[in-house]
Simulated assay, not measured.
Amino acid sequence: MSDQSSINYQQLAEKIKLWAIELGFSDIGICDVDLKSHEKALSKWLEQGYHGNMDYMARHDLMRARPSELLPGTLRVISARLDYLPTQAKFAKILKQPKHAFVSRYALGRDYHKLMRNRLKQLGQKIEAYCHSLNFRPFVDSAPVLERPLAEKAGLGWVGKHSLLINQQAGSWFFLGELMVDIPLPVDQPKQNQCGQCVSCIKICPTNAIVEPYVVDARRCISYLTIELRDAIPEEFRPLIGNRIYGCDDCQLICPWNKFAKLSVEDDFQPRNQLDDITLLEIFTWTEPEFLKNTEGSPIRRIGFDCWQRNIAVALGNAPFDQAIVDALTSQQTDSEMVQEHIDWALQQQQLKLEHLSDNKNERLTARLIRTIEKGLSRDA
């Protein structure tokens, strides 16, 4: 316990970083609260409607770039990184199996919000005990704050062209959280942006959601469409979603910096209920009670049962023709008009694929018949 007037803040900052590692964080950095340089871009993004139905983004407007308005007296933000990549990610394996469900890798285990917030709170309590008094508040997606620009300013990495934070030694497979404090800790230096001329993330996006470097139109993003959107998914995007039923990791998968990604040591982030390798048909049979049970403690639960069925129906429609899929879609009982709309669409897609298969089969039979006739003619000649 120390008298604030005699605190060596440089030493305290070093202690804080050690405490953070002891608490299980992968890395932390410290920055001031000045985000004025981001206000213009934030306003433009909102004016263009790129936030879609996420009304809370517009509601808080520029407060997101003004951390001190969230907690008056805030002088510094301690930004924390927590790696989440599971030891058996199975990215390519699942994406190449269209009848299996792809869940964004951050959502395979338990919800990270409570875990990170508790650790940030413990870190705040350690600082408070050392300083004798401290006004602090932890945030993990729980307040209107620009977490990536803050993390960038705190030296945890740079914001990539896909708008996610990239760390030179750890890629981008990590969560971010913030601890706001009212003490004048020394700040860390930002890292240089090292995306260079690379545009892999822009090119790989299935829906062209990265409309320009560093700008994402959420309305086109598969993560938004499958997680944030509560209405019908626009038809133009449904075929592009593939088997992605919760989120999308394509822009991270293609990023060359993720060859340095760190595997998570957290048991909570390891896959649960076989969601890392499960068929669409299996999860489509879940009743609502089964959905709630199997997603207990998972971030998936917050989208609700209707959106879960909506997403799976789209993926089933995108899968190769299978009579079992048609039977499952046909027999599914739902009171939701939205879900039924997507089931009907999926059935139409399966019918089109069946017709295409039939056409190809007929073409093959016709070609075989022609070859037989030609052989016969050559013998007669």
Rank of each mutant, 00 (worst) to 15 (best):
S142A: 11
L120N: 03
S200M: 12
P190M: 10
T207N: 12
F102M: 10
Q122E: 15
A143P: 05
G155M: 06
Q189V: 14
D141H: 03
A170P: 01
K153G: 04
Q194N: 14
S200E: 14
P206Q: 08
A107N: 01
I166K: 02
G171L: 05
A101P: 04
L176Y: 01
K191Y: 05
M180A: 08
G157H: 03
V140Q: 05
A129N: 13
I202R: 06
I202V: 13
Q189H: 11
Q125L: 14
V181Y: 00
L146N: 02
N193D: 15
I210P: 01
F174M: 08
R137M: 13
V199H: 13
L179D: 00
N118F: 12
P144I: 08
L156I: 05
R119N: 15
C198Q: 10
G196Y: 07
V159A: 09
L108G: 04
G171T: 06
P138Y: 02
N135W: 04
A101R: 05
L115R: 13
P190N: 09
A107G: 06
N193C: 12
A209P: 00
G196W: 09
I166S: 01
Q122M: 15
D111G: 09
A170E: 10
L179I: 00
Q192K: 14
I204R: 08
G160W: 02
S200G: 13
S163I: 05
F139S: 00
C201Y: 00
K99F: 13
V140K: 00
Y130S: 02
S163F: 06
R119A: 10
E152D: 08
F175A: 00
E147T: 02
P184V: 11
E147Q: 06
L120G: 00
P149D: 09
L115Q: 14
G109K: 05
C205N: 04
R148H: 07
H132G: 12
V145G: 03
N118M: 12
K191Q: 15
L115Y: 12
H100F: 13
Q189Y: 12
Q189E: 13
P206F: 10
W173Y: 12
S172C: 04
N167L: 07
A209D: 05
L115C: 11
Y106T: 00
S104T: 11
S163K: 07
Y130C: 07
I183C: 02
Q192H: 12
P206M: 09
S133W: 06
L150Y: 04
L123V: 01
L165D: 00
R105V: 10
V140W: 03
E178W: 01
A101I: 06
H162C: 08
I210E: 01
I204D: 03
G109I: 05
N193Y: 06
L134C: 06
A154M: 03
L115E: 15
D141A: 07
V181G: 01
E152N: 09
C131N: 07
G157W: 03
I202S: 08
R110D: 15
F136S: 03
S163A: 15
K99L: 14
D111T: 11
K99W: 13
N167K: 02
K191P: 05
N167S: 15
H132N: 15
W158A: 08
Q197T: 14
N193F: 09
L123Q: 02
H113C: 11
